[in-house]
Design a protein around this nucleic acid. Structure first.
Length: 852
RNA sequence: GCCGGAGUGGCGGAAUGGCAGACGCAGCGGACUUAAAAUCCGCGGCCCGCAAGGGCGUCAGGGUUCGAAUCCCUGCUCCGGCACCA
């Protein structure tokens, strides 16, 4: 039994685990040795580009940043141990509004605010022990970076991928122009400031994202989460159908013969078109309006225009509209049908005009009810009366609907009928098959100072003149006068505005709009490869060698903005001959988001931010890292709660004790020093080694599958097993030693400091020279250690667990069945009955006796 | 409304057709200590029972199966996305 005096001595001999002493020392050592600097050109090992979404330098690095970065860093270390040359860069998404708001509020320059935040965040990131390649860092607000935004813009301009157009744009009173993706919700509020968004007609710069719609819908060759793919597919919104021309009918006020083109996905319902609706902005509206109707129509147009500017209420508000007092001719049957305008028809989608089929479209149905218009059923399931009264629009579901009330097409299957009708009309030059998309071109102009200046010049004589390459970058002026308002200060900066036209040399004016900051993040991972290159944005040899990115990790909130823009940029850059591939990220993982304890997004203003420095000070970075990985599945996120961090810290303490004090015995444990009942030292050593190798096998699978929480649980189990043998004859054996070694290696990616410290002490104790644990190879599983000689099989009767038996590992199903039926307990439960069936399931994993 | 995802002890979660609740937190009991903290050992879904044991149990209801947290159908709740897209 325990010798108390000796134990006391043992316990005082080992020093306490003190992360604050260990961690900074190793961080300094790793930095000094350049352990994380990637040799991008000379290293012969296979490359692995691991990218994590770069942060915005808000200045408050909170626990959410750790949640994002820690598992990625563990993965970087894990891949390095597998012999990969891992590139794991970091940078800062440094343009954007908060810097300007801070400058407006506190005076000073956005640059100063941004750079001081970056400085703070660099220090905090280093305290995590993250293995970022700091010497490849990118800061997008640096002229050395945004210069290449400008250069790429000019290449896109040459390639016809950038253009300037007048357009009704979404306009936020605070933030100016927004991309469509930046307008949120039914009420159409700004994604940043939540102000109500208006429409304005402005000349703006666009990138032609629509050129790649079909390619963007194709995800072959990339392994992305299903929800992100679906969101992108929905956002692109492809629908197949036809465009059909309706002629206007002549009347005493206009000659008719104008063509109104509509888009429909259901040409089979054309016989049910009983009226037409144009968007209020439709160009034919003034011409078609009957003089008697003009006042009402103008009033409605004006109201609709205001309404899009004011709040747009829910989609189920009552339908409104007015008749133009003109008729159109249905091309399939020559019927004259009335033309309306209504705001439920959008000018920006399809052709801005629809044929209304009230019987088979909910919105048209509602409109028809309200205005007393004819509702004519033209598709029906077999057995439905063609003229049965309708309470609701009937939306056909499948191809087994048949046409009715459609003349010679009656009885045809709906989809075949649709095709036939389109073919027939196409032959007459009145229709053509057509695919429409919801996706629009990307509006990139922003009326802000703190972004990349769009490199064009407006000359009275030469019009729009691109800034020549050798005059890049167009720099932001170093002084900025906000004059207390949110208006773009570039508009008032004469030194910036005045420029000579590069073509004619006459005085001209610079563009003052800057680019959407999503431009910056659409290609930054290429720039990481050659951040100081002043000859080109991307070094072609480096891009060839290092991209596409093997693994990208980041939040799902970027599904339709950043991730779609990045795919667009990659394709556009490929078409400009800058890179050779067309998809940027081979694999994507969306981690969840850590919320405040209140379940809301963490933000300073809500006061729900968890400061990691405080936790690091108390528990050490390794504990915080491990806890964030242990909390739950990485893709889940959830509200922050530090409950339970003590358990993770205890685990690291136990590892510390196991490594440094294998023979210690705890006075509190009555079994201390004795082997588990019925086990001798040989069996104990074998069992320990088996546990170690099984853990290794399972932990590898968990790392590969991003299942860090179960990975850590398995390491805890192994530590618990080791603890059971601590102080016994097994402790200190070769198997013990091997288990400790494996435990440290498996722990190294997740808790890099403590594993490095214990590793170095072991080397020291063995008189061996120090080599970092992070430079070790990931260990191999010994299959012979994992095999077992017996196994325990649960036995069910009618699906209820009743017994367990232990059989030799190679027992045949017949032998297992015989063993089960010989069990006393089973005999008693069967009570003389013979099982109807004996299921030996899963190759002998479980036995189920079925008895009636 | 449409499209995704989820619902398991007091809590975070594990098990994705085969022993429900791994691992951890909180809790309870014990050891050590003058004491507390720390540490160590043990218990731990709910109900009945001293116990052995039995019954119930993965949002609700139904189904498939020898066997369902897991697959299918219906409904409810929560989270995310889209929202008059013809």
């Amino acid at each position: 039994m325990t010798d108390t005096a000796e134990t006391a001595e043992t316990r005082t001999r080992i020093e306490r685990y003190d992360p604050t002493a260990i961690e900074p020392r190793w961080q300094a050592r790793w930095a000094e040795l350049g352990l994380h600097d990637t040799d991008l050109t000379g290293d012969p090992r296979p490359k692995y580009y691991l990218l994590t979404m770069y942060p915005y330098p808000s200045g408050d690095l909170h626990i959410g940043h750790w949640y994002i970065v820690t598992p990625s860093d563990a993965l970087a270390r894990y891949r390095r141990m597998h012999g990969y040359n891992v590139f794991f860069p970091i940078g800062f998404d440094a343009f954007g509004l908060p810097a300007e708001n801070a400058a407006i509020k506190n005076g000073g320059h956005p640059f100063t605010w941004t750079m001081s935040n970056i400085e703070t965040m660099r220090r905090q990131f280093r305290s995590m022990g993250a293995t970022f390649a700091w010497n490849q860092e990118v800061v997008t607000a640096d002229p050395g970076y945004y210069r290449w935004n400008q250069w790429l813009f000019l290449r896109f301009l040459e390639a016809g991928l950038a253009y300037r157009a007048m357009s009704a744009v979404d306009w936020c009173p605070n933030d100016g122009t927004l991309a469509r993706e930046q307008v949120e919700g039914t009420e159409r509020r700004c994604w940043r400031c939540h102000a109500l968004v208006e429409k304005r007609d402005l000349e703006q710069w666009f990138l032609r994202t629509t050129k790649y719609v079909d390619e963007l819908l194709d995800f072959t060759g990339i392994d992305w989460p299903e929800p992100v793919r679906i969101m992108q597919i929905n956002w692109i919104g492809r629908s197949e159908g036809a465009e059909i021309d309706f002629d206007t009918a002549p009347d005493q006020h206009q000659p008719g013969g104008d063509q109104i083109r509509v888009f429909t996905t259901r040409p089979d319902t054309l016989f049910g078109a009983t009226f037409m609706v144009l968007a209020p902005e439709h160009p034919l509206v003034p011409k078609l309006t009957h003089p008697d109707r003009r006042a009402e129509v103008d009033g409605y147009v004006e109201q609709a225009r205001r309404e899009t500017e004011i709040e747009r209420l829910s989609t189920d508000r009552a339908k409104t509209g007015v008749a133009l007092g003109a008729q159109a001719i249905n091309p399939v049957n020559g019927e004259q049908i009335p033309i309306f305008i209504a705001d439920y028809v959008l000018s920006g989608y399809g052709t801005g005009a629809i044929m209304a089929v009230p019987a088979h479209d909910e919105r048209d149905f509602e409109f028809a009810r309200r205005f007393g218009l004819e509702i004519r059923r033209v598709v029906a399931t077999p057995g439905t009366e063609a003229d049965a009264p309708m309470d609701d629009a009937y939306i056909a579901h499948a191809a087994d609907e048949r046409l009715v009330n459609s003349g010679r097409f009656d009885g045809m299957l709906a989809d075949a009928g649709g095709k036939a009708i389109v073919e027939w009309l196409t032959g007459q030059g009145r229709a053509e098959p057509k695919v429409t998309y919801r996706l629009r071109d990307w509006l990139i102009s922003r009326q802000r100072y703190w972004g990349t200046p769009i490199p064009v010049i407006y000359c009275e004589r030469d019009g729009i003149v691109p800034v020549p390459d050798d005059q890049l970058p167009v720099r932001l002026p170093e002084t900025v006068d906000y004059a207390g308002s949110g208006d773009n200060p570039l508009n008032h900066d004469e030194a910036f505005l005045r420029v000579d036209c590069p073509r004619c040399g006459q005085p001209a004016r610079r563009e003052t709009d800057t680019m959407d900051t999503f431009i910056d993040s659409s290609w930054y991972w290429y720039r990481y490869l050659s951040p100081d290159d002043d000859a080109a944005p991307v070094d072609p040899a480096m891009a060839e060698r290092w991209t596409p990115v093997e693994q990208y990790t980041g939040g799902a909130e970027h599904a339709v903005m950043h991730l779609l823009y990045s795919r667009f940029f990659t394709k556009a850059m490929a078409d400009c001959g800058l890179i050779e591939h067309r998809e940027p990220f081979l694999r994507l993982f969306n981690q969840g988001q850590i919320l405040g304890a209140d379940g809301e997004r963490m933000s300073k203003s809500r006061g729900n931010v968890q400061d990691p420095d405080e936790l690091v000070h108390r528990y050490g970075a390794d504990t915080v890292r491990l806890f964030l990985m242990f909390m739950g599945p990485w893709d889940q996120g959830g509200p922050w709660s530090p409950t339970g961090i003590g358990g993770v810290h205890r685990f690291l303490n136990r590892v510390w004790t196991l490594v440094l004090d294998a023979h210690g015995r705890e006075p509190g444990d009555p079994e201390a020093g004795s082997l588990p009942a019925g086990e001798d030292a040989d069996a104990g050593r074998a069992a320990l080694r088996a546990a170690a190798h099984r853990t290794l096998r399972d932990v590898s699978v968990d790392y590969d599958g991003f299942r860090f929480n179960t990975m850590i649980a398995k390491l805890m189990e192994l530590a618990n097993t080791l603890f059971r043998y601590r102080g016994t004859e097994v402790a200190g054996s070769a198997e013990w030693d091997e288990t400790i070694r494996l435990l440290l290696l498996m722990l190294a990616p997740a808790a890099p400091h403590i594993s490095e410290e214990l590793w170095s002490r072991r080397l020291d104790a063995a008189g061996q020279p120090w080599v970092s644990i992070h430079a070790q190879a990931w260990p191999e599983v010994d299959p012979s250690a994992v095999v077992e000689s017996t196994r325990e099989i649960p036995v069910q009767v009618n699906g209820k667990l009743r017994d367990r038996i232990v059989v030799p590992i190679d027992a045949s199903p017949d032998e297992i069945e015989a063993a089960v039926l010989a069990r006393e307990r089973i005999v008693a439960i069967l009570d003389g009955r013979t099982p109807d069936r004996v299921v030996v399931a899963g190759g002998g994993r479980l036995v189920n006796l079925v008895v009636r």
